[in-house]
Design a protein around this nucleic acid. Structure first.
Lengths: 181, 181
DNA sequence: CATCAATAGTTGACATGACAATCATTGTCT
DNA sequence: AGACAATGATTGTCATGTCAACTATTGATG
């Protein structure tokens, strides 16, 4: 990163009565994420599905016929296992997924997306994927690129000495995941 | 797979086969926010206080002796009223706040921060304010400035035609708020 | 003054999220 | 084999967040 003319900084300082840029950045991140979250939630609501459920569906679609063990889903969403179990409970009740106990290792339970689940996803993919609905379409590509990089830097900065759990390779199916520790 | 990442962008592309920059940006925002959230949560946990509760305390500290009506708190956190009621229930149980019914308008209930609440805040302010603990201290000032601006742009882009509820002027006491609408 | 809409809070019901504890199975070690 | 630690899921409990419905007041209106 090259040094930026202090004019920009002055400008910012002027308009932000925050203790520090760092704190303002934190606030900005939280606020923006909440906006995004509610935007997505609102988009999904008509279909009667929550963000987390949608997330699981996408993960399961990516997993294919074989399905995925409960904990594996939890890993991808980096959410605690108990949550997944209950999430799947509700999704199974809506027939979006089915669960079967593994015959090889009877401790494992595989969850698979159902035809209905796939249909639901197909209907939802477009509106969400075309980020038009989600906004951000108004931003320039270069700005988005910068934003992405800066956020990556922020995450780096937040997670300093952590043993760095094997960074999950964000596959195609994931939509949003949670941070841990 | 051995595509030697010459540029940063290539590096990112390599690990993130996202449909669009926009979507990747959204994911980045969500992930980063969650990281921040858990970082803050972890910082507060030892004191036995949650982020929301800490938030309310700061708002109440800002409100001073007079206290603040329940719904007013909700407005500042842009959180639904029911949540505030129960949040205050728990906080009152811990004697961090007290509530009194307004004599002029008996529908209103004022919440005030207690001495204990103030003491708690004093103990927590430093570690949180010195964003050292929270990370982001590793980022350059200029990068933080850029990040803040880009996030602001993103929020603009997300909330397009909304009637734009009167933007709350982020006062001193607020720490984090939620998005609404 | 009696009725009623609006306002401020609260309660009820349900979905998450996080932690601790528990159950069933596997794998290991002796 | 028999005891036990480790693993995969699930259940219990508590804090939140959201929506709908309800209570208590206030204020406005005829």
């Amino acid at each position: 990163m090259e040094a930026v003319p202090s004019s920009l900084q002055a400008e910012i300082q002027q308009t932000t009565p925050f203790r520090s840029l760092s704190e303002e950045a934190i606030l900005s991140i939280l606020r923006t994420a909440d906006l995004v979250r509610t935007a997505i939630t609102d988009l999904l609501a008509p279909a009667g599905i929550t963000m987390q459920q949608y997330n699981v569906l996408r993960i399961l679609r990516g997993a294919g016929e074989a399905g995925l063990p409960t904990l594996a889903i939890g890993d991808r969403m980096i959410e605690s296992a108990p949550g997944i179990t209950r999430l799947l409970d509700r999704m199974e009740a809506k027939s979006w997924v089915s669960r079967t106990r593994c015959k090889i290792d009877r401790r494992v339970v595989h969850a698979r997306i159902s035809t209905e689940g796939l249909r639901l996803l197909d209907n939802l993919d477009q509106p969400l994927r075309s980020s038009t609905a989600l906004g951000l379409s108004g931003m320039e590509e270069s700005a988005l690129g910068q934003l992405i990089q800066l956020l990556a830097a922020a995450r780096q900065s937040i997670q300093p000495g952590e043993p760095a759990a094997p960074r999950q390779t964000a596959k195609d199916e994931e939509f949003a995941s949670k941070a841990r520790n």
